[in-house]
Amino acid sequence: MRDVAFWVLAVVAVAGGVAVFRVGSMARATFALLGSLVAVGLALLLLGLEYLGYVIILMMVMEMLVMAVFMVMYMMNPAGLMPMRMTHNARWAASVAGAVFVLLATGTFLLPEPVRHGRPPADPTRALGLAIMGPKMLVMMIIGVAILATMVSSVVLSVNRRHPGRGC
């Protein structure tokens, strides 16, 4: 049952990724990517990581929507009324992607299989929280402040200064 679920989700994830470059409109590409990422989120459930799986789905829906807004804004032919290609600089991109794939694939065959240390915690959500608030606190604080600074500075840059009352 778990194997079937894994393979179905894996095929959906890869097929969604392929579809991103095969479809003819930005909207379809965005939602093909979303489908792929949702499959990845669901695959985490097979590891017993419910919280991370659902958070991935939650964040990816929001991120893809924001991305769709920006992609459509910057595209020459956003509407998809005329089908457009989703690939740019195809030969160079394909060779880089192929090289990375070969590197990672050989790595999985050459490196020794990892051995499990210890046992999975009874409540992975709680263990995750304790890790973030304990040994990984410094990293999380730095990332948190960096994200906050990025958000504040991007808002400040986009505020319309000539009409301070209307710059939302």
Binding site: F31, L34, E50, Y51, Y54, V55, I57, L58, V61, M62, M64, L65, D123, T125
Partner: peptide
Amino acid sequence: EMAVGVVWFNAMEVGAWG
């Protein structure tokens, strides 16, 4: 019955955006 039901609820409801 889910151990993280509140997160599931939140994740599903943002699907309305999409």
